[in-house]
Design a protein around this nucleic acid. Sequence first.
DNA 1: ACCTGAACACCGTTCAAGT
DNA 2: ACCTGAACACCGTTCAAGT
Lengths: 230, 230
Amino acid sequence: MSPRRPSKKPKKPNKPAQARPQRTRRDLSRDKLIAVALDLLDRKGPAALTMRAVADAVEVTPMALYNHFSSKRDLLAAVADHVISAAEFDGGHADWREQLRHCFQTLRGLCLRHPGLPGLLEREGAAPVSVFAPMEVTLRALGDAGLDEIDSTRTYFLLISFTLGQAAYQARGAIEGLEPSKQIRAERIAGRGYRVTERLDLPARWDFDASFAFGLSLIVAGVEAMASKR
Amino acid sequence: MSPRRPSKKPKKPNKPAQARPQRTRRDLSRDKLIAVALDLLDRKGPAALTMRAVADAVEVTPMALYNHFSSKRDLLAAVADHVISAAEFDGGHADWREQLRHCFQTLRGLCLRHPGLPGLLEREGAAPVSVFAPMEVTLRALGDAGLDEIDSTRTYFLLISFTLGQAAYQARGAIEGLEPSKQIRAERIAGRGYRVTERLDLPARWDFDASFAFGLSLIVAGVEAMASKR
DNA sequence: ACCTGAACACCGTTCAAGT
DNA sequence: ACCTGAACACCGTTCAAGT
């Protein structure tokens, strides 16, 4: 995010400062590998993101990757961290409702640009420290709304499950044709006694953005109700 | 669930009813394989649920499974279907709030008994037709609450994302130690400027049941607000 | 109708060796 | 400090063959 990075923390100045381009190259190749992995994930999906594929893309042996990442999981966490740290979840709004919306619409935006992201965060512990950034913004906003720490944390989990779940569903639907459109349901449901679901008359193309906005508004209204109850 | 199953639908009575134990055996082995796969999933997790492991458990060659399921995905869908069809999502309550609670507490119960279930439903299209059962109950309840079809469907997605997301998080946390407890956060967060999150004083053991109940209540309150707004 | 055995084209990762 | 090459212990699945 910040245009210039801190100049490689010049601790221990007593040590002779002999030029060491390796340090820089090492970081560069780490970044390069993260970029390649993310590109693979975005363009070909999670199944195509293999250590061998990443290695191939930078024309190197698979085992070379293990000089930069201790495992595939480590690489995945770095990818997730790279995506999340690049975002600003704090919109700087005075109103907690706007803060909440900004925060989770930003997260949703990341998930839509990188459809593999929810899987990275939900799947086995590839969640990096940076996931605490949206948590921080959310807890502050909900504190302003009048919730205590526990209820704020609970609501945070609700918001993040909702956001990631929707985005994952959308990504999956786009790929696999699982949207709740009429013909899909019709052929899968016929004669099972799902009277309401069967008759359901939804638009041919489900508006995921509107659906997400509705969910957010519903949660905001719920927060207001819970806060006034206290 | 029901003690006796319908007697193998006796359609086409003109066809000579010569004994065919194969039919029964075939179904039996399918059921057996589903049971074995579910047991593997429950006891050893999703990574241990491989075609080879299932085959080993019934002392057969891996390829024998393909006589009963066209692919691993097909088997996974059958496992999910088996778990979901055994549940009753309709509590028969007159009040839509109670119906909603019953429906998603039931789903949550399934997920806690079978920690691999959310993964099955969320992951690549292993979602069976039976997932429409909770959808049907939810749409009816939300109709009673005063929401139209579109908003009901949106709220259904919110509820299901929330329920599956929480359960998956809980299952993962229990295995990987990712709960939002004080020490976990302390060591991962230190000195990153997450002021609120850092100071957060949560109980050592997060009460997932209470957290889920809170989320449901918040959503119910949100539904009431959205319905009265109409 | 159901099962076997060998094989294919993959995985992530270890280990010993090179520079 | 970084990379290679061969190997290990796995995957899901195809194919041809058996009964």
